[in-house]
Design a binder for these strands. Structure first.
Lengths: 106, 106
DNA sequence: TTGACATGCAAGCATGTGCTTGCATAACGT
DNA sequence: ACGTTATGCAAGCACATGCTTGCATGTCAA
């Protein structure tokens, strides 16, 4: 719990935090939390509807970053690339920086 | 809950996420979660002990970013600059991207 | 007051990052 | 087979970012 194993704690979380640093990627996670198995084109359409004017390639690269962080699982079905959300990398993130006084509500 | 108010949800959270994107800043939060009121020099010493070889100016700038995100409150006492942790901006962050199946343990 | 200590401020630099551009690949329908 | 649809790949560019450098400011002890 001391500061010596900070790097151990942070190890692996770096990719997750950096993946969450972009608003477009966060919006992609918002879209994926509603329904799994969405296509790249499907996500592009939703992004365009959310006021995010990113191109297909840009969104594809964002999804690659999310996949590298373990937040999105990619599976292929025919010519479609389907994306599933995986929130398990977020769990240690939620438990971090929790003060003793505001752990859980009584 | 639809995708239309995504920007509203994300509004204000952008600075927080970008502040958390840096490993040095996360380590600073780790140091501050243990004790409030730590000095810049004190934090520099702890960072050096954690294998982070950042200069004083670098750490000062990191603390500025954390303060701009609302994660750190800065107060002055004499010639010392004391830092307090504020975890309230993290609360909406923890509740985001929570699946219906893993809300809270039974 | 003087010197040491703790911090503030700003410009410059090297790297990282998001995005675009252009073309290649692969699967599906007809 | 052929064209369309959905996606993959890679180079290049504009900008953001973290860090350094150098000096200025302010506070405290003697």
């Amino acid at each position: 719990m001391c500061l010596h194993n900070v790097r151990v704690v942070d190890d692996g979380a770096d990719e997750v935090f950096r993946a969450l640093a972009d608003p477009t990627r966060r919006t992609l996670l918002d879209a994926l939390v509603e329904r799994d198995g969405q296509t790249l084109f499907e996500l592009c359409t939703r992004m365009a509807g959310s006021g995010i004017g990113s191109s297909r390639q840009a969104i594809s690269q964002h999804l690659d970053v999310l996949a590298a962080a373990g937040l999105v699982r990619v599976r292929h079905e025919g010519r479609y690339r389907l994306h599933d959300l995986d929130t398990t990398p977020l769990r240690p993130l939620r438990e971090r920086w929790v003060r003793h006084d505001d752990r859980t509500d009584p």
